[in-house]
Design a protein around this nucleic acid. Structure first.
Lengths: 213, 213, 213, 213
DNA sequence: GATGAATGAGGCTTCATTCAT
DNA sequence: CATGAATGAAGCCTCATTCAT
């Protein structure tokens, strides 16, 4: 994500040696594990370090404080999702609106489904105030991508692309959240994907038809 | 809510006297205030008591521990929302599917919009593990209400009401969450409501049409 | 001391009950004890609390952090010394310079000698940056008192009272510090007092004579 | 300084090579810098190493632990001062008491004034217990030099040289400390020097006269 | 020798909870 | 019943020191 985090939340040092990189990965991964196993309230730096197989001191070499760690975890994850969505928007630029929307929703849901436990884990910390800026930034970028995509569609022409993109995007992300918070099985996810696509298409058609009248 | 909470989460004593009732209300309200002003991480019993204008000791007269307090806050709030939705489902039983769905979505959104800050505040604690059961219970009850309503509709007849109800309900609740987390203005909420209704109708029509083929 | 400390260094709450007052006194006293027994480097809040016979939590009820505690200890002590000196300056206002100076120096030295171990203990923390403002404030007030006293003397008339007051005051306080850091016995203190008075008188006479030429 | 430090505080290896010498100098200098910039409480080996442009590992090649580092810094500095004072005492051996005392005080003050920031920095660590032995040793040596000097003076003949030397020396060192802790400007230092000399002379004359009676 | 990543004991501080008044 | 002082376990974070590279 290009969005630059507040100074205080930045990681402490960049990994110069390969060892460091591995350590950082282990710590980030451990954070997710602990989040899943113990919940947000029981997440503490000692436990994370333990699970990562390093000492607390090491953790603090890379993250100036707990919040920065959580921030990094969420950022890394969201970044992957946002980038997938942006790439998709790019790829489907100018395509018919139906296909485009399906692709966008599918991309988003699949990006989350790639690691359903991670999705769940991260929803658990998203309540932290410091995460709000991150979530907002991610949301904005994805909505912007949606706007670009919808605008580029040949068969479109919306009265209010911004608003419709917001509605569609809220719907997709919001419903997906509910889905993963309920620990959906792969099959449920599959069906859900189909239905969300259907819903978005139906909505956009409705909007269009409304305009045509 | 009929759902019976684990023994340990029940409030300590029933408010038999008016004074108790007022104190409890003050405490619950203060919890929301603190949540909004300081975030979930800085929410502590002392601060809540202070804000409520009582001593910590008094707080502990009514709630055996912090979790019980949070539980009560969330429960009371969710209960109101769920009951509104259930009443709506009851009221629209047997009505045409379009009107019914509109009513359900509108009821839900308006219930949340009654106190948008409260909605935001409670989303902030929802990450706590202990709230999950509550959220799940509320979700189930509302979904059940939706199922009943959809099933009763004369012009319906779904292949899979359960699934469709889940999709619609996830969509409404999920998108609404996104909305309030973005601290929407009343106007935005109004437009959003219209669009969500449109979306649900479009989706259900799609589903029906799909079946008719 | 009227000097108002930076917000962050203020004690947390004022004692409303008698119990609190006793607790605070015990903590402040314990701080001096620990300082003497273990030195500044080994002074930690746990040890202080232990020695005071209270829990750490209690300590933090009254002092927001370690620095505030140290600040309070030093402040209370310095205040006593400064007030004694100011009272003395007041009492000897207009008296012959020799008596006045003797009184001032004696007052200062005796104020320190009242609790020689406390004097030593506090010199040990005075290096902390946060104490500098306190020390400066105390120094200023005492120098000002010295200036007032010297100026009021009938047989005086200095070219540069400010400067002479500074020199005399630096000398008295500085030499006294050296004295107590060397853990002087009462007899040594007595002799020292005599000699410092002699020195100040001699110096001020010198200065006067210099001017008369 | 001839005083032999406790085994554990000795630097780890003798600087046989020029490079080592340079490194050690850089580290010692960096210590002073950090002390001035961040205060004693924030002085840590990493920061010192960083400022010195070496790694922590290297720092530990030369100093077995932090205390040894601090010890070395203070020792080197004090040694310079003490040696200057001793040399002065030697040079003025047998000279008239006035000149001798002036020279001694001037030498001491100038030695400190050579690096006023260093003087300030070192006063900041002097609270550490481990420095006390060093300070005491320096004090003793300088007082001894003063005793020798005063005793050698042809026009002297004190009842109690030891005591008078102590008083004079306490005064000079103590007042000088106050001076540099107040971050005096060069001009202030100059005036101060004059006045301190005046004071010492006046005092010693007094003492003599007292005896003559 | 030099480096800097890793360690973990130890210090600081918070806050849920109790209980004497 | 209400109060709020006291408790202490538990979490956060720092930093002296070591050691593999």
């Amino acid at each position: 994500m290009t969005y630059s985090p507040p100074e205080s939340l930045k990681p402490r040092k960049s990994p110069r040696q390969a060892r460091s990189k591995a350590t950082i990965d282990a710590i980030l991964e451990a954070t997710i594990q602990v989040l899943l196993a113990d919940g947000a309230r029981r997440l503490n730096t000692t436990r994370v370090a333990e699970r990562a197989g390093v000492s607390v001191g090491t953790l603090y070499q890379y993250f100036p404080h707990k919040q920065a760690l959580l921030y990094a975890v969420v950022q890394r994850y969201m970044n992957a999702v946002v980038e997938a969505v942006e790439a998709c928007a790019e790829a489907y630029h100018g395509q018919p609106i139906g296909e485009a929307t399906d692709a966008l929703a599918t991309t988003y849901i699949d990006a989350k489904a790639a690691r359903p436990e991670a999705a769940l884990a991260l929803y658990r910390v998203s309540g932290e105030m410091d995460m709000e800026s991150l979530a907002n930034s991610a949301f904005s970028r994805m909505k912007a991508a949606a706007v670009r995509l919808l605008s580029s569609s040949p068969d479109a022409g919306f009265d209010n692309v911004e608003e419709d993109a917001f509605t569609v995007h809220s719907t997709v992300t919001g419903a997906t959240r509910v889905l993963f918070e309920n620990e959906a099985t792969p099959e449920v996810v599959r069906d859900f994907r189909t239905q969300i696509c259907l819903m978005c298409r139906a909505y956009l058609n409705s909007v269009k038809r409304g305009r045509e009248k």
